[in-house]
Design a binder for these strands. Structure first.
Lengths: 249, 249
DNA sequence: CGCGCGTTTGACATGACTCAAATGCTGTGG
DNA sequence: CCACAGCATTTGAGTCATGTCAAACGCGCG
């Protein structure tokens, strides 16, 4: 029996194979979503030269730590990551989750060290873009700079929305908003918008939304009772997207 | 009698005069804090050409509205602004406050319309940077692009800290963190780090910190009772910065 | 001077947290 | 391959921080 949930690992495998063969940007399956968008073919070749296609990361493995020297930006190639920042007493906030084609480390550009910690949520791989090289190339390729600027601006925009969520929304609204935002991101990447894996733990979700784990767990149960979702372990199906949207506030 | 609180309006007047005389970047008092930092003198002249030094904005006046066409970035020249985003039912979140030398509109770069609304908190003025012109210039002046990228990254970093605040901090910690962050920004601008004007209303502060107005008001009273601050209307003095820092969490 | 809004203060309500315990899942070693 | 250990998740009961509602106060503007 081949269920939907068998597809994602398969696609991950493809990405992994692509990685192992040092596939170039122009042939990468993430092309549409990634930095090269809008660059000319000749430019791409140059970009390729500075990209390090690094080895994979295991679940729980750290991509970079708070205060590590800022050397590179990373683009998720396969898998997923979370970033966190922490208060002086150790309390942590999960600031973002990152999926294939998304940039990690953009908030470090203005400093010489990372401002957050990035950890893989599953077996994952990344493309590493040494920032100095990227800047050198950027002064020759204005479109590359624009792409980069656009990326940071987009993340900024998303963060502002999260502020609204954290500051003003109730727990139901928070979870509904979060699930729909995940759904959209999966859809953009060619996965199902209705059924997907929650690669992050309940406590990562809770933390990101400014809730307690128990609250999130209860919400999942309630959403299920109300026919909004079907959830089994880490697999979730959105069974009533309309009602979910109405819940977002 | 000339109290400390008479100084800021005075400095604002200077900025206003500078503005009226169409002062150029290289002679602007915000030079250190603003975009031109790191540009060569010749480059500055070019930058000057594309900057529109717009007329002032009154308290409460809108700089741009949600969904207005994204034409320009703005740099605060004097005064202060707030930006807000809103949920579908009208609930608003104050996403940021902006002081002289800071950029407004960076989150719109990735779209063709503003993602938020910007409103003056007092009589204020701005420099307007038409984005298309800025990009044209940027392709000739890589350092300008880097400056811009650095700016967006910095705002991103600040937003992540606010997530920690909104998601994990108690009401005291929120207010203490906020007051110290204001203090630092005033200090960076050559104003007193200990005594300054809260140009935003209590309800703007409360909203920004994810609290109710009443909570903020009670906190101000309690902080005062505990000798942390002295507050009179919109003027606040930090009387025990150490204790305040200890409160930040 | 008086009106109106922003702010403060008080009393009460409640959504979400904490603590506690049961249940389920995953990965590991025998 | 199974059994067990340890961690993640769920569920329940009770508490608490912060929000809501209501009213008084006072500052700033016309």
């Amino acid at each position: 029996m081949v269920g939907t949930k068998d597809i994602k690992p398969l696609i991950d495998d493809i990405a992994r194979l692509e990685h192992e063969h040092q596939l170039e940007c122009q042939d990468c399956s993430l092309y549409r979503l990634c930095l090269p968008l809008g660059l000319h073919r000749d430019d791409l070749v140059q970009l390729d030269k500075i990209i390090k296609r690094s080895q994979g990361y295991d679940k729980g493995q750290t991509l970079f730590n708070l205060k590590d020297d800022f050397i590179s930006l990373y683009v998720v190639r396969s898998g997923s990551f979370k970033t966190t920042i922490s208060a002086s007493d150790g309390r942590e906030q999960v600031t973002s989750f990152y999926f294939p084609g998304e940039f990690i480390g953009l908030d470090a550009i203005h400093m010489d060290s990372y401002q957050s910690k990035a950890v893989a949520l599953e077996s994952s791989s990344v493309c590493e873009l040494p920032f100095d090289n990227l800047q050198d190339l950027g002064s020759e390729l204005p479109r590359l700079q624009v792409q980069l600027l656009t990326r940071v601006s987009k993340e900024l925009s998303g963060d502002k929305s999260l502020m609204l969520l954290l500051g003003k929304k109730t727990s139901d609204e928070k979870l509904a908003t979060y699930l729909l935002s995940l759904s959209k991101r999966f859809k953009d990447r060619g996965f199902s918008a209705k059924e997907f894996q929650l690669t992050m733990s309940r406590s990562d979700i809770a933390n990101h939304l400014g809730l307690a784990v128990e609250t999130v767990s209860r919400l999942f149960s309630r959403f299920q009772d109300n026919g909004l979702i079907a959830i089994k372990g880490k697999t979730i199906s959105l069974t009533d997207v309309e009602k979910m949207q109405a819940l977002c506030g």
